[in-house]
Amino acid sequence: MSLRADQIERYSRHILLQDIGGKGQEKLLAGRVLIIGAGGLGAPIALYLGAAGVGTLGIADADMVDVTNLQRQVIHFTPDIGKPKVVSAAEKVRAINPDVTVHPHQEWISAENIAGFIADYDFIIDGTDNFATKFLINDACVLGNKPYSHGGILRFDGQTLTVKPHESACYRCIFSAPPPKDAIPTCSEAGVIGVLPGVIGTIQATEAIKYLLGIGDLLTGRLLTYNATSLTFREIRIQRNPKCPVCGSQPTLTELKDNSDALNVCELETT
């Protein structure tokens, strides 16, 4: 593959970078990233990965754009209200960069379909809003040996961790099981400052780009936490947990299953 004249111009700021260059840009164009969730986190992730020229982007979300999304989900515009989020997101990514092939998947992720989804991609990004799916993504990525980025936001706080299965700590090494439904407030109940997913999502997008390029140090073995009120970032070293139910020495979780609250938590709460 070699870059066309218009691509040389479009990606010139990448090409200038020592760690990217033309060869790195070609790696990005050959790269395949699946973004699960086209909401607060998925919005900046899809926009930046699209602009960067990641050649194939899968975007999975069954939801429709709602007016309450627009305070932070910057990929969706007011005229998109009522439209499937994946359709709205795909339109924006294609408008930013026609080089990108977008695969919109308008369905909820479940134990039944997730393995098939992630198999087609190099790197997976969790931009979901409920624990059942977050744990399912972790388990599927560990069992399917796919690197992935976890992200979570609430009120003024965010956290993110990159997982290289069987090499670095996974989400279950920290949190062994999902909390009971309703135990932890969601953004729709507790609120979230609109810029927060921009901070966490762009870090997750950076991880995907670094992984595709094979450069730098990924956010593995370190949970990064961010508090917007005090403007502090903290990094907590996380070792692999030998008792982890999915990647420990004697795993108890060897096949995927949906958690009891696998339906979208926010959806249930608002109906």
């Binding site: 870059l3 040389i8 111009e9 010139s12 090409i15 200038l16 260059g21 033309g22 060869k23």
Partner: peptide, 12 residues
Amino acid sequence: MTFVKTKLELEK
């Protein structure tokens, strides 16, 4: 843009 094109050739 001249350096961008030069760099692409240098990579080869």
